[in-house]
Design a protein around this nucleic acid. Sequence first.
DNA 1: GCAAGGATGGCG
DNA 2: GCCATCCTTGCG
Length: 197
Amino acid sequence: MALDLLGKLMIHESPEGRTSGIVVETEAYLGRGDRASHGYGGRRTPRMEPLYGECGRAYVYVAHGHALFNVVVAPPGEPTAVLIRALEPREGVELMARRRGVGDPRLLCSGPGRLTEAMGITKEHNGVDLVEGPIYFEDVGLEVDPGSVARTPRVGVDYAGEDALLPLRFCLADSPYLSRPASPRPRRTSRQRAGGG
DNA sequence: GCAAGGATGGCG
DNA sequence: GCCATCCTTGCG
């Protein structure tokens, strides 16, 4: 499902105007057995009710002062979701820039917290139906070549032990709009420099 | 009521 | 790499 969402157009028709962007980066959270998932071990609190609800709805929560947007992808009772981490801005770029307070298009939606701010998505959207809108996805016929999709470990889940290593982050490898590069920039240690390697 | 801790972002 | 930020949770 995380893979299926790549290349789709995500749209929000808000009172301030319409914004949209192509999904270029997602992460899968597998539910009860996934230590990185909010629903690990069946953990359940009031704010995460939508995560346990019907698929095709939004699960939005706040962390570090930022709203993070997920699509619930499993039947009721299974806390499984896809986190949208980055978009390539399409419509309403000016509105996005105003909401974000930056001009560079690459800084508008390149991160889970950035894209919710740019799209005008808040925790008030927790549980909204993604078929009825005002937030929804559209297939715009963009073909995603499997060879252009990169898989990496998920971001910011170091606490999850072995599950932190699972390659559950999916991105369009060549997109300039990712939250960070698909492949870690080759890191040169001081030892390697000293060794002339 | 309060302290602790993030599925982050910005700046350096 | 560090810290602001602010909501949610857990505990009392």
